[in-house]
Design a protein around this nucleic acid. Structure first.
Lengths: 208, 208
DNA sequence: AATTTATTAGAGTATTTGCTCTATTTTGGG
DNA sequence: CCCAAAATAGAGCAAATACTCTAATAAATT
C-alpha cells in the first residue's frame, strides 16, 4: 500500500477515535512512522487530507442512496437505504463530530458538504415519493410534507452517531447503535407507512 | 459589571461567533482588555469558563421546559415550550457546535450534559403524555412511542442550530431559523396531534 | 548507463496556546 | 487611617502545531 493511502487510513482512524481537531500532522506521522516531510510531499496541507477523506465519504454516501432497480421499492431495499447510509456515517463519524469547525475553517469543503446535503435531501424526497407511488405509504401532510420528512431523515442521519457518542460515557459506539438510528428514522416515517410495509422493512434491524 | 462576568459574556460572544475551539484565553483577554493574570485569577483554567457557561445553559433550559400551570396544556403553552427552549439553544449555539469535542476533553462536563439530556428526555415525554391525557393528541405508536417521540424532539432541539449554520454559506443564523426548527419539531408530532390543536400551536410561529 | 522524476527522511522554524509567577493597585471592615 | 484580602497587570515559559528546507534515496524513462 502506498504511503499516501497509509496517511489517509491512519488519519481516518485517529480522527474517528479522538476527533478531527485533536489530530495533527504530528500524530499521523508518529502513528504511521512516516516523516513530516513525506506527509507534506503527498498533501499540501492538513486541509487537503480532510478534503480527500471527505471525497470518499461523499462518494460512498451517494452510492448508498442510488436505486438502480426498477420500482416498486421493496421493504428490504427501502430499509437498506437507511442502514447502508448510516453505516457510512458511522465509518466517517469524525466528520459529523467536528462538522461546524471543519466547515468554518475550509470554505471549499463547506461548499462540497452543502452540495452533498442538497443532493441527499432531493434524493430522500424522491425515495419517499416513489414509495407513495408504489402504494406503500400515505402522502405526508402539509404542502411541504415530503421536504419536511426528508429533512428529518437527514437530521437523524447526520446527527445520530454523535448523539450516541455523547450519550455513552466513553464516547464509543457499536453496530447496535447504528441500527437504533435506523429504527429512529423509521419512527418518523411510521405514521405514513403501510403497517405491513413498515413491519417488513424493520426486519432488517432484527436479523444479521 | 464584574470582570468575571465580562469574561463570561465575551467568551460566549466569541465562541458563538467562531466556535469554542477557536477561542483561547488570549482572544478573551484581548477582546475584554483584561490581563491573562486577571482571567486566571477568576477562573482556574479555560475548562472552568466553559463549565460556567454550560451551567447557565443548563439552568435556562430546564426553566424553559418546566410547567407550573395546571393542566390542560394550552396550544400556546405547548408551542412555547419548544420555541423558548430552541431560543436558548440558539443563545448557546457554541456548545452544540463543538459538543463532542467539548465533552471529550472534559469528563465532568460530559456527565453534566448527560444529566441534562436524561432530564430533558423524561420531561419531553411527560409533556407528550399530558397532551394525550388532555385529549389533544393520539398515543404515539409502538411500545416505546413516547420515548421515540421525545428523542426525535431532542435530536432536533440540539442539532437544529448547527444544521442551519452549516447550511448557510456564512454559517450564520437569524431568528427565522429558530422558528423553522420549531416547525420541524411540530412536523414530527403532527401525525399524532389533533388538527385543531396543531393549528393553534403553530400560530405562535406566524405571529411575533 | 545516464538522467530525470518521484518519494522519503528529519532537522529546523515561526507562531500560538494555555498557563504561571511576581509585582502592583484597589477595596472594604475595624 | 490601617492593613489584609481581593483584584489586576503583564512579562515570560514550556509545549505543541503547522509547515519548510535541504538532502538523500528509489523508480522510471531514455
Amino acid at each position: 500500500m502506498s504511503n499516501r493511502q497509509r496517511i489517509l487510513d491512519e488519519a481516518l482512524l485517529l480522527m474517528n477515535e479522538q476527533g478531527a481537531q485533536a489530530i495533527g500532522t504530528k500524530q499521523i506521522t508518529d502513528a504511521t512512522g512516516i516523516s513530516p516531510g513525506n506527509l507534506y510531499y503527498h498533501f499540501k496541507n492538513k486541509e487537503e487530507i480532510v478534503r480527500s477523506l471527505f471525497a470518499t465519504l461523499d462518494l460512498e454516501f451517494r452510492e448508498s442512496l442510488i436505486d438502480e432497480l426498477d420500482p416498486p421499492i421493496s421493504p428490504a431495499r427501502f430499509a437498506s437505504f437507511y442502514l447502508d447510509s448510516l453505516n457510512i456515517a458511522w465509518k466517517h463519524r469524525y466528520f459529523f463530530g467536528g462538522l461546524l469547525h471543519l466547515l468554518r475553517k475550509d470554505a471549499v469543503l463547506a461548499a462540497r458538504y452543502r452540495d452533498m446535503q442538497n443532493w441527499a435531501l432531493g434524493n430522500l424526497e424522491n425515495i419517499a415519493r416513489q414509495v407513495v407511488r408504489d402504494g406503500n405509504m400515505a402522502k405526508p401532510r402539509g404542502n411541504n410534507g415530503y421536504h419536511s420528512l426528508a429533512l428529518n431523515t437527514w437530521l437523524i442521519w447526520c446527527n445520530w452517531i454523535r448523539h450516541v457518542q455523547v450519550s455513552a460515557p466513553d464516547h464509543g459506539i457499536d453496530r447496535g447503535g447504528v441500527k437504533a438510528g435506523v429504527a429512529q428514522i423509521f419512527d418518523v416515517m411510521s405514521p405514513y407507512l403501510k403497517p405491513e410495509y413498515d413491519k417488513q422493512a424493520r426486519k432488517i434491524l432484527i436479523l444479521g
